[in-house]
Write a protein that binds this DNA or RNA. Structure first.
Lengths: 402, 402
DNA sequence: CTAAGAATGTACGAATCTCGACCAAACCTC
DNA sequence: GAGGTTTGGTCGAGATTCGTACATTCTTAG
């Protein structure tokens, strides 16, 4: 789970042995299936440059173990020929446990390798509790409710945490609204109790992996997945790999300064992006403008007000889009992921809001042949994070060892 | 040279064949030598996990071709044993051409694989010229002056450009002070004339590769290399790989907004980091404070004024450090590279300036077990970019094909 | 209805690489 | 000088992919 400490020596890369080659090749075949969808052996051979014979040898054990299944023959190309048998993940095989831990609430799911949610469960806990043990118990209960009794096939469990984490040891560093959980080594504790490997990571990063394996990030080499709402966070896939930073310390985009000397942030500094791109700003502005239900304002209700032509709503709608675009444009300037997948509250702003953000982002950037950045709203809805928990496990299991 | 377009489908990874394995393994052995320094076969075997027999087979052709040489036997470990023969790059072999193109000025060098600058040359051209052909001629002249007549061993040529580039085709998109070069496909033109592969990239990115292969970035998994002075730019190495973004459109950190509604930037927007973290701001402030030689103020002269206790200098010194820290802290929040290697004007501010920046960066970040970010001044001095041009070629040549 | 064409999936030998074991060389300690 | 330790080289075994040839299954033409 380690990814190199700040300034620490890079671990010396291990050489490619034949044993590793077959593992890497298997991972690449599976990755192609994730990225593109069902593919025949001949398709895979063309894509990977290998011969059909090699692909056959690689997929045979996967079919025997039930990981992959042959689907119905595909329609034949004009001119005839033997119809191809597309391969894809069995709807139920290779189950992965997934947990989303938020202050006061635990969601768990069982997800198949192909991204089917096979079971879900919820648990509650008092957000301000100091009894971290009871939270661990609740996580275990939620997992027990979804994990099958037969745990031989289980790959592992992914846990997404809405707070700062240490991905090296799998512990929680700090959660804003649940201070009692600070320092809790949730990953090892859960791993001991259920006897499976556990991968714990930041919520927006898990969400990004949901997009990467099961959403609009499939087959895309670089993109950023942004969560908005009460807070703001980002997970980034760069050149096909999720980026964490040492011990998972990256992704805290909400506290990048976009307005030096601006509003006070709850982090103590001034002008963080969070001060102008989250509910707090939206609701304060809505109150200032005298909009109805300002204290519970969301992007969805604002969009409806603006559509109805409510005085001031249109202006706030545009300003909020501009504020969101500010941080996105900064990210594009630095890393140019090219695609931004937005999750959370903003999605309810609808196409009008999406295009307003995209327009503002593009207006803020100089032209480059690399192309204009695209803003997309997630199609995974509330499944994103739980699928992302599974993606966390997949990313580790399929991580190319070479 | 392509690295995937924005939102474009990731190219399907090619499978690992035995033929590619040996190439990849050779690259890893060389990378270990770059990261760590001279190593014996036994050292390499321990580091890579391979057997000494395998390492022997890998390095033999490299020794025969003269790429590597056996150095004098190393001192023996206590307890005895046959003294190890450290291997390292021959001081002259594997020569790489390097070009640094700035408005009005061309620097060229011949660099050995081990980072020895074997020859240098300069050419001038009128910055505002519209005759792009004459600039290409000047580049060729500079290269002819440094490249050996025998071009069989030459690996390639790297070109670092102080402006926006398209790394896919190797062309210049725009240079601020040399608008006549916009759209010039310099890479292909030079490649045709000298008959070698040419890799063209953004100046700060080349500089980062200089750090990565020959400077403080050796063996470090992630870091950011920042250029400061008239403008500001960044090159990033994340998890061991340089990040470009589609067609090399990333790295424009100078035009990220850190002060929405702030000073007008030459890019047309307001509050770009460049407006408060480059010479322009420094000189304007120095003028406002009535400091001597304000119009030619640099960090070096400011540091000397502050050391002498000149009124106002100390305050400006601290404010400039704060302004620089602002953008660095943002980068650390998002990506957490952990190490920031600074180049250009700021280096002349000395240790006092370095520690002032580091202090300001750390003060702006919440604590995380990932560790505190470190700020370092480049030890490569003015060689950074030319070494980086060679690093550009190395990164492509040694890019792990698997 | 039959035969040719085309594409998919499988079987077998050749080539190549790494691994493991063994051996000679060089140095230290006793 | 003998024994131990470490380095570097040699050789056969095992594993994997590649190239080629072959069986299978569908379309299309006559």
């Amino acid at each position: 789970m380690t990814l190199g400490e700040a300034g620490a020596n890079r671990p010396a890369p291990t050489l490619v042995s034949p044993a590793m080659a077959v593992e890497a090749n298997r991972a690449r075949v599976l990755q192609a299936l994730y990225d593109i969808g069902p593919l025949s052996r001949a398709d895979l051979a063309r894509l990977t440059g290998a011969t059909r014979a090699t692909i056959g040898a690689i997929v045979l054990p996967l079919l025997e173990r039930g990981l992959l299944v042959e689907r119905d023959p595909a329609p034949v190309a004009p001119g005839g020929g033997k119809p191809a048998r597309p391969l894809f993940f069995s709807p139920t095989s290779w189950p992965i446990g997934s947990v989303h831990l938020r202050p006061g609430r635990i969601d768990a799911a069982l997800v198949s390798a192909g991204g089917n949610v096979l079971a879900t469960a919820q648990e509650q806990f008092p957000a301000r509790t100091r009894d971290a043990g009871s939270v661990v118990d609740a996580v275990i209960r939620a997992l027990d409710a979804v994990l099958p009794k037969e745990r031989d096939d289980l790959v592992g469990v992914g846990i997404a945490v809405g707070g700062m984490v240490d991905t090296d040891v799998g512990s929680i560093v700090a959660i804003n609204l649940a201070p009692g959980l600070a320092g809790l080594p949730l990953g090892p504790l859960v791993s001991d109790r259920i006897g499976l490997p556990v991968f714990l990571d930041l919520h927006p990063r898990a969400q990004a992996l949901g997009d990467r394996w099961f959403g609009q990030g499939r087959g895309v080499s670089s993109f950023a997945s942004i969560y908005t709402g009460e807070a703001i966070g980002v997970g980034m896939v760069l050149d096909g790999a999720i980026h964490r930073g040492p011990k998972g310390s990256g992704g805290e985009i909400g506290h990048t300064i976009v307005q030096a000397g601006g509003q006070q942030c709850r982090c103590g500094r001034r002008g963080c992006w969070e001060t102008i791109a989250t509910h707090r700003w939206l609701r304060a502005e809505a109150g200032r403008l005298g909009l109805p239900a300002a204290r519970t304002m969301t992007t969805g209700t604002l969009a409806r007000l603006a559509a109805k032509g409510h005085p001031g709503a249109d202006e706030l709608f545009e300003n909020y889009a501009y504020n969101l675009a500010l941080g996105i444009a900064n990210l594009q300037q630095i890393l140019a992921p090219g695609l931004f997948i937005l999750h959370g509250d903003v999605v309810f702003g609808g196409e009008a809001f999406r295009s307003a953000i995209e327009r503002n982002v593009r207006a803020a950037l100089p032209p480059h042949p690399g192309g204009e950045p695209r803003i997309a709203f997630s199609e995974l809805q509330d499944r994103a994070t739980l699928l992302g928990g599974a993606g966390l496990v997949l990313s580790h299991s399929l991580q190319l060892a070479v």
